[in-house]
Design a protein around this nucleic acid. Structure first.
Ligand SMILES: [Mn+2]
Ligand SMILES: [Mn+2]
Ligand SMILES: [Zn+2]
Ligand SMILES: [Zn+2]
Lengths: 128, 128
DNA sequence: ATGACACTTTAGACAAAGTCTATATAAGCC
DNA sequence: GGCTTATATAGACTTTGTCTAAAGTGTCAT
């Protein structure tokens, strides 16, 4: 509730409910998985509301969109800065600390643009 | 032709045609853009063949899939190792040299997996 | 050449993710 | 309560991409 308020989000029944279900433990969930989760809690939320809410939470920094799979967006409840290892065969997605990957200095950004974020994806597959 | 042969790809009429249109200059094109391009060359290629061919070229290392936009996959004709700057508002996508971004040492990969690739995306937006 | 078999192309049906619209609910305020 | 605005909802719709079944093309042995 407070987290939503702080982020300037009206804490409606559905939003609070989604927040409660999601913001426990670090997870990477698709919209469809969230929709499904809500169904099983006894208080289902409509598809449109799930999409609206995930989009809103992402825009306000409560969730992070992870664009890693051509077929769906994942929503990341770990909102500390970090990067990802993605197993393109099993679909397993895990977090890695960003210090291990990035050098401290980014290249110059294009004229008239500002940084929004840096995403690093290490794609792996099962051996053999 | 030779490039396809070398990559173990049967150089059919359609595949050669697509290769000729794409492999001139560095571009980032969606499947739909490729389909459209082929229409305007006088020798159209079917949608299924465009998707099949792009997938095949990517699997054989002739093209590279860039998963950067939740709505479509881009195919990258620059097959040297590099990374990307993506303007999430304008959709502009440009290449950057990978040395500027990555430290030399990757973290340990999960057990039983091997590296497939590392993708770095610097997301930017217009100022103001 | 002819036939046999595998590989490729194609149109269009289909699937899945996500968006939009119009209406109904709910919330905030007096 | 009554008013106003924000949000939720069902379901139609759009877009990207996949699949299927049929036809076309290539390759090879005979
Ligand atoms: Mn689904
Ligand atoms: Mn299109
Ligand atoms: Zn994560
Ligand atoms: Zn590129």
């Amino acid at each position: 509730m407070e987290r939503l308020q702080t982020a300037g989000i009206q804490p409606t029944r559905q939003r609070v409910h989604i927040a409660q279900v999601l913001l426990t433990g670090n997870q990477h969930l698709s919209a469809d998985q969230v929709l499904e989760k809500m169904k099983h809690t006894g208080k289902p939320v409509s598809k449109a509301t799930v999409y609206n809410t995930l989009g809103l939470f992402a825009a306000r920094g409560i969730l992070r969109e992870v664009i890693i799979d051509p077929a769906r967006v994942f929503y990341d409840t770990n909102n500390t800065p970090h990067h990802h290892v993605y197993n393109t065969v099993t679909g397993e997605l895990s977090d890695i600390d960003l210090r291990h990957v990035l050098s401290e200095q980014l290249p110059e950004l294009p004229e008239g643009t500002e940084l929004e974020g840096v995403d690093v994806v290490i794609r792996v597959r099962p051996v053999r």
